[in-house]
Design a protein around this nucleic acid. Structure first.
Lengths: 212, 212
DNA sequence: GCGTAACCCTACGCACGAGTAGGTATGCTC
DNA sequence: GAGCATACCTACTCGTGCGTAGGGTTACGC
């Protein structure tokens, strides 16, 4: 009379994803330290030792979250912005993909952006990912410049790229807190600021997405 | 034979500032949770119960740090950007004051920006301060628009302001990690991005600070 | 020169949460 | 259907760090 167990046994790969889902959710709500392994385990519908068996210590679990969400995001962006398009087109597609991702994975974004920044052991990890993004944007700008036969100091380029990435992240943060907001529209607004600048906007010049 | 005490007794106001200095330092290095009251007390050259007597619990202490650093920053900006100047001039002065502040108070900035964002109880507090900044920038843009007899949706204005603030914060973060960088120069770069936009920069248009 | 208030300490209680020990059940293979 | 690997659990240990009890010492008013 094997009373049907409340919940089934599941293969490791599935349980790991459930655990990561739960971890991302709890980490994003509570922050790394305030999140407890007990809560994560409970939220995943499993007991704590299983989490340790599969994903390791709390730090390792957090890093696993970071990697999964980071990789997902990078893939979303890279898949959208083909390298042989003109700069504005690439920027636009990258932005749209990025805001789309954040809109669909608000928790994941919160873990990456809000939590990992402050905590010592992970800040570096995150900074690396961010640096890759900055590099891409800087490369894009540089490419566009060379096409016009012009040039600019590498440091300036990097700083400009940094500012663009920062502005984008900031709007993404805004988006994460405004569930009713439209990612597409937010991307358009970002494009206006980044591409045209405040002065142009004040003079009535606006950028509109290409009708694709 | 009262052996001269190792360190003098000091009035409350002085000790409180020393404690806040230590707290900002430790919080910025370790993060809220990882920072221990013992370390803060030791760093302030005082014993733990004194910290509790003067500044209250750990949370209250953190809020006190937030308030002090936030107020200092707001004053630095407000003091620089007179409300009756043209928009670009105001923006420039505000940016310069802001980057100057961050350059001089890197720890304080780290507490505000990197730590307070993620931790639940403080995120709101910080968001309020940030909202005030966004409001100021949005108001500035709106003012400039009306002067030209034009208008724009309030939401769009706010989002643009948000992006500008975000880009600025992001560069400030970059500045905090690059001790050799010049705040003034960073402000100029930010001005270029925000005011002219990427497209203009790519076409060789640049903005230069007024020779005051 | 004595009371009293402010300053300051050592040493602890106690809760919370990371990580583990040790064992049970289930399904898959041959 | 015996053997074995894998999934899963309850129930602990133990360190860490917040917050405090209880008491000592210096300065200042009167």
């Amino acid at each position: 009379m094997s009373s049907v167990p409340a919940f089934k046994r599941l293969p490791r790969a599935v349980r790991e994803q459930q655990m990561l889902d739960a971890a991302v959710k709890v980490f994003s709500r509570r922050g790394f330290h305030a999140a407890s392994m007990d809560e994560i385990a409970e939220d995943a519908g499993i007991s704590k030792p299983m989490v340790y068996a599969y994903l390791g210590t709390k730090e390792e679990l957090f890093v696993a979250c970071l990697h999964r969400e980071g990789t997902r995001m990078m893939q979303a962006i890279a898949g959208a912005a083909a390298p042989d398009l003109p700069a504005d087109e690439r920027l636009w597609r990258g932005l749209r993909a990025f805001f789309g991702f954040v809109g669909a994975h608000r928790d994941g974004w919160a873990v990456l952006y809000r939590q990992a920044r402050g905590e010592q052991p992970f800040a570096g990890e995150l900074a690396t990912m961010r640096a890759r993004l900055v590099e891409v944007v800087a490369g894009m700008l540089d490419h566009a410049l060379r096409a016009e036969g012009r040039e600019i100091a590498a440091i300036d380029l990097e700083v400009v790229a940094y500012a663009l990435v920062g502005a984008t992240e900031s709007l993404a943060d805004w988006l994460a807190d405004h569930p009713e907001a439209d990612p597409e529209k937010t991307a358009t607004r970002m494009m206006n600021v980044a591409w045209l600048g405040a002065a142009q906007l004040l003079h009535g010049v606006t950028w509109r997405p290409p009708t694709d």
